[in-house]
Computed example of a mutant assay.
Amino acid sequence: MKNVCIFAHRGSKGTHPENTLSAFEEALRSGADGIELDVHLTKDGELAVIHDETIDRTTTLSGYVKDYTAEELKMADAGVKFSPSFKNEKIPLLKEVFQWASGTSLIINVELKNDKFPYAGLEEKVIELIRGYSYEKRVILSSFNHESISIAQKIAPEIESALLFEGLPVNFEEVLKTKQGAGFHPALAALTKEITAKAQTLGCKVRPYTANLESDIIYLLELGVEGLFTDFPARAIRLASKFQEGKN
């Protein structure tokens, strides 16, 4: 029985403000194998950890990430909208998360958020930072922009990459074949036993997103996926442990 890798989606997003250091700390405390986070480029070329292209939904400021400098983004409160108890949480920079993670063994899935805005040089900047921290074996680069993954694979073939899919194209197997070695990160709703088997036959690690309900987590465990993304890592870890005990 293989162990499934539990990734805390945007940190422990279900219990803490997403993509903040407190959410990543909670993921670590819960025993998650890894964290998933999103990166955008700021006006001054820094790598900001935030999901949306805009800062409106999760912070007290508004506008596009790309129109703010890193210093200006630090003026936004990224915690209070989730709960007053998280007031004064900041939007972290990727280098700050990497520095924090240096005392851990967490795998870090960095999603390149260039599917809406084509941030020039995003891949190079992220890879340069990964190499600076010697995290080549600890990071997975993923994106819905599959051309971005091609660029990343060319620059840094030693860093694991993965293709994100919202819906699956009919020719998804051909797409996977063209990105040799990339992981397969589909939406939970699109995944079946047959699709899982096809991807695994191609040598792809299957890691669906986002499994929060107990029934969904158990479904994925029964499919034999290599990993899964969840907003509630403590829940997924408990269920995975229980599932494994039942199989042994």
Score class of each variant (00 low, 15 high):
Ile217Ala: 05
Lys198Gly: 00
Leu228Asn: 01
Ala190Tyr: 03
Gly181Ser: 09
Glu158Lys: 03
Phe165Gly: 00
Phe165Tyr: 14
Gly167Val: 15
Thr196Trp: 03
Ser161His: 14
Leu202Ile: 03
Glu173Arg: 12
Phe184Thr: 04
Leu202Gly: 03
Glu222Lys: 15
Asp216Cys: 06
Pro233Leu: 03
Thr201Cys: 10
Leu188Met: 11
Gly183His: 11
Gly181Phe: 08
Gln200Cys: 08
Ala190Gly: 03
Leu168Trp: 04
Glu194Asn: 12
Phe229Ser: 06
Gln153Met: 13
Phe184Asn: 04
Leu213Val: 02
Val175His: 09
Gly167Trp: 13
Lys198Asn: 07
Gln200Asn: 09
Asp231Lys: 10
Gly203Cys: 09
Phe172Ile: 09
Asn171Ser: 13
Leu228Pro: 00
Phe172Ser: 03
Tyr219Asn: 11
Leu220Val: 11
Ile195Glu: 06
Phe165Ile: 09
Leu223Ile: 01
Ala189Glu: 14
Gly181Trp: 09
Cys204Pro: 01
Ala162Leu: 02
Ile218Leu: 15
Cys204Glu: 05
Val175Arg: 13
Gly227Glu: 04
Glu160Lys: 14
Gly227Lys: 02
Glu174Asp: 15
Leu163Ala: 10
Tyr219Thr: 06
Pro233Arg: 02
Phe165Thr: 01
Glu226Ile: 00
Gly224Pro: 10
Ser161Leu: 02
Leu223Val: 06
Leu213Met: 13
Glu166Met: 12
Leu223Gly: 00
Thr178Lys: 15
Ala162Arg: 06
Glu226Gln: 14
Ile217Asn: 07
Ala189Met: 09
Glu166Ser: 12
Val225Lys: 03
Ala162Trp: 06
Lys179Arg: 15
Glu166Gly: 12
Ile217Arg: 06
Ala182Asp: 04
Leu191Arg: 07
Ala187His: 13
Ala189Gln: 12
Phe165Lys: 02
Ser215Tyr: 05
Phe184Tyr: 11
Thr210Trp: 05
Thr196Asp: 00
Lys198Met: 05
Glu158Val: 03
Pro169Arg: 06
Glu214Arg: 10
Thr178Leu: 14
Glu226Pro: 01
Ala187Lys: 14
Thr210Leu: 10
Asn212His: 10
Ala211Asn: 07
Leu191Lys: 07
Ile217Thr: 07
Glu166Thr: 13
Cys204Phe: 01
Asp231Asn: 15
Leu191Glu: 05
Phe229Pro: 00
Tyr219Pro: 00
Gln200Glu: 11
Gly183Pro: 07
Phe172Asp: 08
Ala187Gly: 09
Ala189Tyr: 12
Leu176Arg: 01
Thr230Val: 08
Glu173Gly: 04
Leu213Asp: 12
Ala187Ile: 01
Leu202Tyr: 00
Lys205Cys: 04
Asn171His: 11
Leu221Ile: 10
Asp231Ala: 11
Ile155Leu: 14
Ile195Leu: 06
Lys193Pro: 00
Val225Tyr: 02
Glu194Leu: 08
Glu222Met: 07
Phe184Lys: 02
Leu188Trp: 06
Tyr209Leu: 02
Lys177Arg: 15
Gln153Val: 07
Val225Cys: 10
Asn212Leu: 12
Phe229Leu: 13
